[in-house]
Amino acid sequence: MLSRYLLSIVTMACSLTALAQPIEGADGRLTDPSGRVLYTFDRDSAGVSACKDECAVQWPPFSASPDASAKPAFSQLRRDDGSLQWAHRGKPLYYFVGDAKPGQASGDGLGGTWHVARTRPAETPDSGPSYSPKGY
């Protein structure tokens, strides 16, 4: 009972800015309109959230309003509790409670299953030309 109460408080707090659709940052990261980073969960399947109960307390869903219109690649899914959640290419989107400020992404890679939501792969720094001699 207490965990459901906490979940509703955290979800409500995160939902205040979550009624608009996700925004793509310059580096391809997805954020909410206030700049809070969004995440995906490897255990989710297309259009279905596997993050419930205690999981959703730590990883609150990025809520959607019923009248929000989605751009291509974005959609809404209905959670088990009847609320709507934004998805990118079918993958549900979440916040991480450990992120204290916009742009922070301290949940990236946690448990090997949580990742910053991106519209394209992260760019890796160019280490310059590589040398590979022939025949070796």
Score class of each variant (00 low, 15 high):
residue 43 R to Y: 15
residue 53 D to M: 13
residue 3 S to T: 10
residue 46 A to H: 11
residue 23 I to V: 15
residue 25 G to N: 14
residue 133 P to F: 02
residue 31 T to G: 00
residue 79 R to Y: 01
residue 93 L to Y: 03
residue 70 A to V: 11
residue 99 D to W: 06
residue 101 K to N: 13
residue 112 G to P: 05
residue 23 I to K: 08
residue 21 Q to L: 14
residue 28 G to I: 06
residue 27 D to P: 04
residue 69 S to A: 13
residue 83 S to G: 09
residue 127 S to M: 12
residue 33 P to H: 10
residue 37 V to P: 00
residue 110 L to H: 07
residue 125 P to W: 02
residue 89 R to T: 01
residue 18 A to E: 04
residue 59 W to T: 06
residue 10 V to L: 08
residue 12 M to E: 15
residue 96 F to V: 06
residue 43 R to P: 11
residue 111 G to F: 07
residue 34 S to P: 03
residue 111 G to S: 09
residue 72 P to D: 11
residue 91 K to A: 15
residue 82 G to A: 14
residue 36 R to T: 02
residue 105 A to N: 07
residue 136 Y to I: 09
residue 117 A to W: 02
residue 33 P to M: 06
residue 111 G to Y: 00
residue 116 V to I: 08
residue 69 S to I: 15
residue 135 G to W: 10
residue 41 F to L: 11
residue 28 G to N: 03
residue 69 S to R: 14
residue 14 C to W: 05
residue 71 K to H: 02
residue 45 S to W: 05
residue 75 S to A: 13
residue 122 A to R: 04
residue 108 D to S: 06
residue 18 A to G: 14
residue 51 C to Y: 11
residue 81 D to C: 10
residue 47 G to F: 00
residue 105 A to F: 05
residue 87 A to M: 07
residue 20 A to E: 15
residue 45 S to E: 08
residue 54 E to T: 09
residue 54 E to H: 03
residue 73 A to P: 04
residue 62 F to T: 10
residue 26 A to S: 13
residue 92 P to T: 00
residue 56 A to F: 07
residue 22 P to V: 07
residue 30 L to G: 00
residue 125 P to Q: 05
residue 29 R to I: 02
residue 106 S to R: 14
residue 136 Y to A: 06
residue 43 R to Q: 04
residue 8 S to D: 12
residue 42 D to V: 14
residue 5 Y to Q: 05
residue 45 S to L: 11
residue 85 Q to M: 01
residue 122 A to W: 01
residue 28 G to V: 02
residue 93 L to F: 07
residue 6 L to K: 02
residue 15 S to E: 03
residue 112 G to D: 06
residue 1 M to Q: 03
residue 19 L to M: 13
residue 1 M to V: 04
residue 61 P to W: 08
residue 128 G to S: 11
residue 17 T to E: 09
residue 123 E to F: 04
residue 14 C to K: 01
residue 40 T to W: 04
residue 107 G to R: 03
residue 55 C to Q: 01
residue 99 D to A: 05
residue 31 T to I: 00
residue 81 D to F: 00
residue 106 S to Q: 03
residue 33 P to E: 04
residue 88 H to G: 01
residue 10 V to G: 09
residue 105 A to P: 08
residue 57 V to P: 00
residue 93 L to D: 00
residue 69 S to Q: 14
residue 128 G to I: 09
residue 100 A to T: 06
residue 44 D to L: 00
residue 99 D to L: 10
residue 122 A to E: 01
residue 51 C to R: 01
residue 11 T to S: 15
residue 36 R to D: 09
residue 14 C to G: 03
residue 95 Y to W: 02
residue 129 P to T: 08
residue 32 D to L: 10
residue 45 S to F: 12
residue 128 G to T: 05
residue 9 I to Y: 08
residue 80 D to N: 11
residue 62 F to P: 01
residue 90 G to E: 04
residue 6 L to W: 02
residue 128 G to P: 05
residue 1 M to S: 03
residue 9 I to N: 10
residue 29 R to M: 08
residue 106 S to E: 05
residue 65 S to E: 12
residue 136 Y to V: 14
residue 3 S to F: 06
residue 115 H to S: 07
residue 49 S to M: 12
residue 134 K to V: 10
residue 58 Q to A: 11
residue 75 S to C: 03
residue 16 L to Q: 15
residue 100 A to D: 11
residue 1 M to P: 02
residue 38 L to E: 11
residue 26 A to Q: 04
residue 23 I to T: 12
residue 79 R to V: 05
residue 52 K to I: 06
residue 109 G to L: 00
